[in-house]
């Protein structure tokens, strides 16, 4: 199969690197599992879902409000960011003059490179007081969603533009040639053809939102009570770990590793969804 010696060496090297990368994921998973073990497989294990609240220093470990906080912020941020990303991508690709599209893309690239702590700090000193002057304490689910959606928007837009660019230009030109309007072309040709890439972008950005720590920690208030509204504080799994890990001992520590494990499982579920969707796509393509 490989005719040249160089190829054989190169493939060997690639295999080694791939194995290494896979091993790191396994190592992290194993590390989390061993650290969480004393908690998960003790009499406390079930408490993650049955206790009244999360008060680890008094032996109460209800993680449900924190899991909900993670889901709410992630789903909220994605549903705020997706329409904007989609609209911008369509505008840049089909309506805007070419120079504007290029300029916009490079602005998005710059935004995508800003570290999350900067977004968090901006949220803390600007957005939180702004929300506070309107409703509640300011540090809330709403603020978290806004900051998070702002953070995932640039990369989301770039990925959406890339997905639209993947649509073969013959299809678009063919559609124009048939006399379809621009919007009809977008709706019937471009969007369905790029749907797969769009969904990939969505899932990638969801995993980023789910794992985001510093920015969320600074603007969400981090209360561990059940969140019942947009203006109430929430704590996410990643913020929970960042806030308490450095100070945690024994069972508290193991409980935090359990929450890291829960976070990792959530990310895995998202990635599996992505894989599943890819496979579905490829079998569908194979049949047609």
């Amino acid at each position: 199969m490989y005719r040249h010696k160089v190829d054989i060496k190169f493939v060997g090297l690639l295999r080694l690197l791939v194995m290494l990368a896979a091993c790191i994921v396994l190592l992290i998973f194993g590390f989390l599992l061993t650290e969480a073990w004393p908690f998960l497989f003790s009499e406390h294990g079930g408490q993650l879902f049955t206790d009244a609240v999360w008060h680890p220093t008094t032996g109460q470990y209800n993680l449900v409000p924190v899991i909900l906080g993670t889901l709410y912020t992630t789903i909220g941020a994605v549903s705020v960011a997706v329409p904007f990303a989609l609209a911008t991508a369509i505008f840049c690709q089909f309506y805007a003059p070419r120079w504007f599209g290029r300029l916009y893309t490079s602005v998005m690239e710059v935004l995508a490179g800003i570290p999350s702590v900067v977004y968090g700090f901006w949220g803390l000193v600007v957005l939180v007081p702004l929300v506070a002057s309107w409703q509640g304490s300011g540090a809330s689910l709403l603020t978290g969603i806004l900051v998070l959606s702002l953070m995932i928007l640039p990369t989301g837009t770039l990925l959406a533009i890339a997905a639209l660019k993947q649509v073969p230009s013959e299809w678009i030109q063919g559609s124009y040639a048939l006399g379809l309007s621009r919007w009809a072309t977008i709706k019937n040709i471009a969007l369905p053809a790029s749907g797969h890439g769009m969904l990939n972008a969505l899932l990638l950005q969801s995993t980023r939102a789910i794992g985001e720590t510093m920015a969320v920690l600074m603007v969400c208030g981090n209360s561990t009570l059940f969140p019942f509204g947009l203006f109430e504080p929430v704590r996410t799994l990643s913020a929970n770990i960042a806030l308490e890990m450095a100070y945690a001992m024994e069972m508290h520590r193991a409980a935090l590793y359990s929450s890291a494990l829960v976070l990792m499982v959530m990310v895995f579920i998202l990635l599996f969804l992505n894989q599943f969707q890819n496979r579905l796509e490829s079998t569908a393509n194979g049949k047609s």
């Binding site: 609240v53 008060h55 220093t57 008094t58 109460q60 803390l124 000193v125 939180v128 007081p129 506070a132 509640g136 304490s137 300011g138 540090a139 920690l217 600074m218 208030g221 981090n222 209360s223 561990t224 009570l225 504080p233 704590r235 960042a242 806030l243």
Partner: peptide, 25 residues
């Protein structure tokens, strides 16, 4: 600790000072 009803839970002193400096309430 179970009786505390906090709206904002912070990590270090600096974060707490910023939270109060940015919020008159």
């Amino acid at each position: 600790v179970a009786d505390l009803r906090a709206h904002i839970i912070i990590g270090d002193n600096e974060q707490g000072i910023k939270a109060v400096a940015g919020n008159a309430k």
